[in-house]
Simulated assay, not measured.
Amino acid sequence: MQSPELSELMQASAQDAKIYAAEQHQITLNGDFASLAKVDELLSRLHLDQQTKPHSAEMLFTLCNIMGAYVGEIFIHTVGGQWQSNNIDQTAPYMAVGFGDKEFPFASVCYHKITNDNSISLQDYVQQAKQNAMQ
């Protein structure tokens, strides 16, 4: 996939995250850094749901990708970088934001928060990613 096409896809996915948050969780995501606290709140709800009634693999994949796209778009707009597809492992390709020689797989962090560790904070992760990108 060409970079402009990938960028458009991820921007559309970020919009899907806003719609999902509003319609399914009554959470307004406005695209600024402060809204990452709301992303953490939404992902915490999904983590609790996952414990009692696990999401299907397809739903989990979709949720992680749209929320990761939303977080990635905030990172790109505040720090810089571009979307890239990582296909090193053909059985598990993923999207990440590349900045210099660094890569930030926001959807993967969403997945780990939902499925494994609710203490993960996307807001903290993005703050650390910003610091790492500037080094």
Score class of each variant (00 low, 15 high):
M1D: 11
E5Y: 09
E5N: 09
S7P: 01
S13M: 14
A14M: 02
Q15A: 10
K18G: 01
Y20P: 00
A22N: 13
H25N: 11
H25Y: 12
L29G: 09
D32G: 04
D32F: 05
D32Y: 00
F33E: 15
A34V: 01
A34N: 08
A34I: 07
S35P: 03
L36W: 06
A37V: 08
A37W: 02
K38E: 08
K38Y: 08
V39F: 01
E41H: 06
L42E: 11
S44W: 04
S44T: 11
S44K: 04
S44G: 10
L46F: 04
H47F: 09
L48H: 13
L48A: 11
D49A: 09
Q50R: 00
Q51L: 10
K53M: 13
K53N: 15
P54T: 02
H55P: 03
A57W: 06
E58V: 10
L60W: 13
F61Q: 11
C64I: 08
C64H: 03
N65W: 02
I66D: 02
A69F: 04
Y70T: 09
E73A: 06
I74V: 15
I74C: 01
F75Y: 12
F75H: 09
T78Q: 12
G80E: 02
G81D: 03
G81M: 01
Q82A: 09
W83A: 03
W83I: 03
Q84D: 12
S85P: 02
S85K: 14
S85Y: 13
N86S: 03
N87K: 15
N87S: 14
D89P: 04
Q90C: 06
M95L: 11
G98N: 06
K102G: 11
E103Q: 15
F104H: 12
F104C: 11
A107W: 01
A107G: 05
S108W: 07
S108L: 11
H112K: 13
K113C: 03
K113L: 08
T115W: 08
D117Q: 09
I120F: 10
S121L: 00
S121D: 07
L122P: 07
L122Y: 09
L122S: 00
Q123A: 15
Q123L: 14
Q123H: 14
D124L: 06
A129M: 03
A129Q: 07
Q131D: 12
A133K: 03
M134S: 12
